[in-house]
């Protein structure tokens, strides 16, 4: 579904993405991992058209995304730091996004707001919300339109364990519907049971991309964090 070919991006002296090529398919749940500043978020932003690559191209469903915007209908995005118009209430924000994406008036996926119990907080203004609650709003927005592709940047950061579990279950259930999910996270333990593939980035380069089962076989480890640790040691 997503094919990135030789994507380069430079911010001043920093080579944020260095010839990144990646191929993601339907039904996969991909963990995008790597140390801080390895280019994960930049890559995600490139996928969303928020950062424009210096060279290389990205296709979503076989369509080049540069200066296109229609493809974003198929994407639900949950950013690392959720920023919202401070003066609006949760309900207004959700209604606004619904309104602006109005052609998606087919079935809305309102499972998450229910599960998070957000409806009780609908009248609150964004500026009064805690970081965790903002993440919940953000997550709700990402899943709201039943997108084929989910891009979740540090989804569990700031969430309490209960909400974290709710979100994980949601991701698993979406995976079973055949959706593509891209997740970055530092908390690798959160990604167990979720991911089918692992993409590892470092210094803007894509180090490897392989199925989790294959990695588990190679390293003989079960848990994702152990797997990764073993790989790092071997390098």
């Amino acid at each position: 579904m997503i094919i990135a070919t030789n994507v380069n991006k430079r911010f001043g002296k920093l080579q944020a993405l260095d010839n990144v090529s990646l191929n993601c398919n339907k039904g996969q749940t991909i963990a995008l991992i790597g140390p801080n500043g390895s280019g994960k978020t930049t890559f995600i932003k490139c996928l969303l058209g928020m950062v424009i690559p210096d060279s290389g191209f990205i296709t979503v469903n076989n369509k080049n995304i540069s200066h296109d915007w229609h493809y974003r209908k198929q994407i639900g995005y949950m950013p690392q730091m959720s920023r919202f118009p401070e003066n609006m209430t949760i309900e207004q924000v959700i209604d606004m996004v619904k309104d602006i994406r109005s052609d998606a008036n087919e079935s809305m996926d309102e499972e998450l707001p229910e599960a998070f119990g957000l409806k009780a907080l609908y009248g609150k203004r964004m500026r009064t919300l805690s970081g965790g609650t903002r993440q919940k709003v953000s997550a709700c927005l990402a899943f709201l339109f039943n997108p084929d592709i989910l891009i979740l940047d540090e989804p569990t950061a700031g969430l309490d364990p209960v909400s974290s579990e709710i979100l994980k279950e949601k991701i698993i259930s979406e995976k079973s519907k055949g959706k593509l999910t891209l997740i970055t996270s530092h908390v690798l333990s959160d990604l167990d049971d979720l991911v089918t593939e692992v993409v590892y980035m470092q210094d803007g380069k894509l180090r490897f991309h392989s199925p989790l089962t294959k990695l588990q076989k190679e390293t003989g480890e079960e848990k994702l964090n152990k797997v990764i640790a073993r790989i790092m040691q071997n390098q």
Binding site: G49, I75, Y77
Partner: peptide, 16 residues
Amino acid sequence: NASEFIELLIAQPIRR
């Protein structure tokens, strides 16, 4: 101040 608003909407299917 509207950068949040813009960031929120930029990931939505809207022409920049």
